[in-house]
Write a protein that binds this DNA or RNA. Sequence first.
DNA 1: CAAAGGTAGTTGCACACGCAACTACATTAG
DNA 2: CTAATGTAGTTGCGTGTGCAACTACCTTTG
Lengths: 192, 192
Amino acid sequence: MPELADITNPDVDATADAAAPADGTGLGAFEALLHDERLTAAGLLFEVAAGLEAALGSQIDGHGLALSEFEVLLRLVRSPGGQLRMSDLARQVNLSSSGLTRLADRLEARGLLERRACPTDGRGSNALVTAEGRTVMAAVLPGHVALVERWLTSALEPAQLQALTGALRAVRAGVRPDAEAGARTGVAPGPA
Amino acid sequence: MPELADITNPDVDATADAAAPADGTGLGAFEALLHDERLTAAGLLFEVAAGLEAALGSQIDGHGLALSEFEVLLRLVRSPGGQLRMSDLARQVNLSSSGLTRLADRLEARGLLERRACPTDGRGSNALVTAEGRTVMAAVLPGHVALVERWLTSALEPAQLQALTGALRAVRAGVRPDAEAGARTGVAPGPA
DNA sequence: CAAAGGTAGTTGCACACGCAACTACATTAG
DNA sequence: CTAATGTAGTTGCGTGTGCAACTACCTTTG
């Protein structure tokens, strides 16, 4: 068994349990953990994310889109050329490959998305927003941003908002290192 | 049709779309929205929540629990008497009634939870953590808190963490007003 | 007290998603 | 060039969850 120092290894989550006596230390320590401020902070983050998601959700599916579908289209319209590799897209929206396959199927059936064979890699498809997809997004986005404004940004002083995004970026750097910098140009680094 | 001023009405999400020209204003405005900093802030929040969830998830289901099951048990062990009304519990963990019914079924089948008929209201059950449920949580929590420490709190300066929780609380006040104050005592306000 | 309406919780159904297995292509080793 | 290994994307299958309908109970109104 590794020593406690191994807790710093980010690869194996289970090593965190090395710090857990699981007994012996008694119930006092357990009771203390229940009201640990770190636990509270994490819970707060999840609560707010879920709450904001709910606050934004109804407007989006008022336009006939699920939240994950909206996120996919959003990533696409934000990408140069309006296209992205399926696998990149899947990572960006936190979906498995198969999940994105199905989702893309639905959007394609509705004419909001097309699949293009990737010219440089015979295996792959690029997902591409159609003109109709853009139209839908153009209809959804203004209201969406208005709701973000109402529930998120306008609830905070400018300095608070700045602090929030700064802190979130710092956390993301650890938890999602690939989302970091250059936001990956549209498709492959090949010729446009 | 209501005027733009109606956008301040929080009851009807669709009113946010009143601000959406959907055409006429042209594509420049649309393009601008795509890189709106408010949109980025919201996306950041969701990304971090999802990332942290993933970072914490594997340790939890290393103990045979799904994340939502963990959250339910956590709410219960934090409640006085270790019990909570089903409907309250459902709201707290952002689950529908039916979702919680099924989840409670699973936990009950594993002996981590019991249902008690509510003495003051013949319709209702209280969910109650069993001793075994507490044992499981005692085994999971230390490692869980260690991971929260590693990925969330230790990634931030103390002042940053303070600012983060402050901002999150401000947002939650709007988006989840019921979660606000007194955290609702265990069961009903009746005699213990 | 009786009737009407509201609330708590459970079940039928549909569906989105993850995992594992598979195909097709790419890449590297020999 | 051929073989072995790795990667992109799709499908079969199981499962967790929301919605709508239903039952049982509470609450309010006449």
